[in-house]
Structure formats: structure tokens, C-alpha cells
Design a protein around this nucleic acid. Structure first.
Length: 201
DNA sequence: CATGGGATTGACT
DNA sequence: GTCAATCCCATGC
């Protein structure tokens, strides 16, 4: 299993968002499998790149395969993977992970204690702010190469997942686009969760 | 230079 | 269900 290279990201952002489900993010001694993503593209107003190139959005227009990290609500860091050819502003927001390695370290960084509420693997990385904190991803990682690190993304090694497309979360514009992707069977995604599979009979 | 608005989360009614 | 925390940056004077 190897790190995903620039050609993987240099494609339509919605396609990359769907295919990142099942891949693995690793940083600072901890790792997790991606179970939820959202796509953002300069052509729609929910994307930071909609306003064009500014100091903030410069990374989004850069070469594919870079990390775009920004601060949300003054508190949380958000980890994105820059997509599409250089010059096109687009990225995939990593929204939830299934923890693989370094659970104890994740709990320390999240400030939750093992065997207490909020410390279960399903809650450690179930949201973009949470996973950035658990992985110790900071604004300083903005622009880092996801193939070379320190923050890296690897191709998935597990069995393929059933992926569902849903409207994106927490935005006030372009709410109709079904550009949020979740692993259907995962208990590790953020809210609102996909409808549980309906059972026939 | 002042202002306003978030790609969120956790605590509380 | 409601609400505040808190900081970066786009925008407008």
C-alpha cells in the first residue's frame, strides 16, 4: 500500500471525494480510515475558492495533492486534499475517520479519558474538527504534500465500502448538491448520519 | 483599520 | 431544540 500521488487528485473533485472513502490518513503516530468526505469546487458558492485567488485560497488553486488546512469558527482546523489540475480551485474535506492506530494518543489530544463518555472509537474522529485535533493537524500544515508528508494519505487496503451521496453539512449556499460521501456501514461518521439500511420484511 | 461571517463542537434548556 | 467560544480573512470604508 502506497501513498496516493498527484495524479489521483488531478481529477474531478467529486470523483476523488467518493474514492477517498476507505483510504488511510496518517500523521504524528496515529492513523485512520476515511469514512466521510465532502467535495468543494470553485464553481459553487459554498467553496472558499468561489471568490477567486486570495491569500487564503491560494493553496486551493495550487497543484493537486496538497493539504489545504484552515481554521473554522475560530477553533477547529479543517483538513482538505487539493484536487483538479493546478489553477482550478477545488478540494475534498476529510470529515470522519475510523481510528486505526494510536487510539490512546488520539484520546490525549482530544482531551477525553478512556472508558469515559466520548472516548469510544466511534466518537474520536467523527467530525472534521475532531479528526484534525486527534491527528494533531494544524494550520501550519497548509500546503504540505500529502504524498510526502508530514500529513500523508495512503490508498485503502480493506474491502471496498458501499458509499452513499448526501447533501453537505454546515453550509448556507449550494445546499442542494449531493457532494457529501459516507461509508454506509460505518458507525464512525459525523452527524447527521446516513439513514440506517432499511430491512425488508 | 473595523466589521462580519463561517465547510464546528460541546454544553445546556 | 438553543447558544457561545474564538480567529482568520474577505470586504468595505
Amino acid at each position: 500500500m502506497g501513498a496516493l500521488q498527484a495524479d489521483f487528485y488531478a481529477r474531478p473533485v467529486v470523483e476523488v471525494a467518493r474514492e477517498l472513502i476507505g483510504c488511510v490518513v496518517e500523521h504524528a503516530g496515529v492513523a485512520g480510515t476515511i469514512v466521510e468526505t465532502e467535495a468543494y469546487h470553485e464553481s459553487e458558492p459554498a467553496c472558499h475558492a468561489f471568490v477567486g485567488v486570495t491569500p487564503r485560497t491560494k493553496t486551493l488553486f495550487g497543484p493537486p495533492g496538497l493539504a489545504y488546512v484552515y481554521r473554522s469558527y475560530g477553533i477547529h482546523a479543517m483538513l482538505n486534499a487539493v484536487c483538479e489540475p493546478e489553477g482550478v480551485g477545488a478540494a475534498v474535506l476529510i470529515r470522519a475517520l475510523e481510528p486505526l492506530e494510536g487510539l490512546g494518543e488520539m484520546r490525549l489530544r482530544r482531551g477525553v479519558v478512556a472508558s469515559r463518555e466520548g472516548s469510544s472509537p466511534a466518537e474520536l474522529c467523527s467530525g472534521p474538527g475532531k479528526l484534525a485535533q486527534a491527528l494533531a493537524v494544524e494550520l501550519a500544515h497548509n500546503g504540505c504534500d500529502l504524498a510526502r508528508g508530514p500529513v500523508r494519505i495512503y490508498e485503502g487496503s480493506g474491502s471496498p465500502r458501499t458509499v452513499v451521496a448526501l447533501p453537505r453539512v454546515g453550509i448556507s449556499q449550494a445546499q442542494d448538491l449531493p457532494w457529501r460521501f459516507c461509508a454506509l456501514d460505518s458507525a464512525h461518521v459525523s452527524r447527521p448520519r446516513p439513514q440506517p439500511a432499511l430491512r425488508a420484511g
